[in-house]
């Protein structure tokens, strides 16, 4: 049933990562993704991989779910690996045939890049696995609120995101309903060329637009009735407070950063 649609890929749980302040999670994820790119040597990347593994273990999200998040980027992974193997040249040659040459440098860069991408994907999916879309939106709003100085309407953007999250399931249900109604009138959505199929979408698209505008109008009225006048003077029920675990996370992240920089200096750069 359409009602079962879940957005984002939140995996309910009560782990440390789940309970962390979403602002810290968001900032830490963002920061650590940058650190991934700072890594230049294998030991540095190793430290980063260790960090990612520990985070994954702490999240209590099953390994299967985490692997699932890598699946969509599998093609990119393979592509990058192949590209790097054949195009970065240097060091010892392992294998050579016709114009194709596999060198030490090539293999090293390929492995390095692949680990980097995996760490990146795993970290960012850990964020979405342990944080609901609503909390992410909230965190984003609060983190970006200093941008108000530059007249960027952070609250409005966040409100729009929340409303989009709220209405996507409703609209999917609506599309389903309209499609069935038009199919019942003999609309043929499955056959014909691209042009014909595009044309067949009109009977679905127009009622959807009409109803979306109606919804938007009614929603605006309802929000006015609840005294919504924009972000000014609003308070929030759910306060975000930094707890010990958030500070701990910050400290760990800083240590990892320091470690990565040090290891970069003392070991041979791969990239």
């Amino acid at each position: 049933m359409v009602r079962d649609i879940t957005f984002g890929q939140y995996y309910p749980g009560k782990s440390v990562l789940h309970r962390m302040d979403p602002r810290m999670k968001l900032a830490a994820t963002f920061g650590m993704i940058i650190v991934i790119f700072i890594c230049k040597s294998f030991p540095a990347l190793g430290l980063m991989t260790l960090f990612t593994l520990v985070a994954a273990l702490l999240s209590t999200v099953p390994l299967k779910m985490i692997l699932k998040s890598i699946k969509p980027v599998l093609i990119i992974l393979i592509f990058t690996a192949v590209l790097n193997v054949f195009y970065s040249k240097g060091g010892q040659t392992y294998f050579s045939w016709w114009k194709i040459e596999v060198t030490e440098k090539g293999v090293n860069t390929a492995v390095f890049t692949v680990i980097r991408i995996i760490a990146l994907v795993v970290l960012s999916s850990l964020l979405t696995y342990t944080t609901t879309p609503t909390m992410l939106t909230d965190a984003l709003e609060r983190l970006l609120s200093p941008l108000k100085v530059f007249h960027i309407k952070v609250h409005t953007l966040a409100m729009m995101m929340t409303l989009a999250l709220r209405f996507i399931p409703t609209l999917i249900e609506e599309i389903d309903r309209i499609m069935n109604a038009q199919k019942a009138r003999g609309a043929d959505l499955e056959t014909g060329g691209i042009l014909q199929r595009a044309k067949a979408l009109i009977p679905i698209f127009i009622p959807l637009m009409v109803s979306s505008f109606r919804r938007a109008y009614e929603l605006a009225l309802a929000m006015t009735c609840r005294c919504y006048t924009g972000g000014e003077g609003r308070t929030r029920m759910k306060q975000m407070k930094l707890a010990g675990r958030d500070i701990a996370c910050l400290v760990i992240c800083l240590i990892v950063l320091a470690g990565v920089i040090t290891l970069n200096i003392f070991f041979k750069k791969v990239i």
């Binding site: 019942a184 127009i206 009622p207």
Partner: peptide
């Protein structure tokens, strides 16, 4: 299957939302 669509006319709840 296609024939059944024309033999059985289905009019859904709030059918006015199908007008286009």
């Amino acid at each position: 299957l296609r024939g059944s669509r024309f033999k059985v006319g289905l009019c859904f709840q709030y059918p006015e939302y199908q007008l286009f």
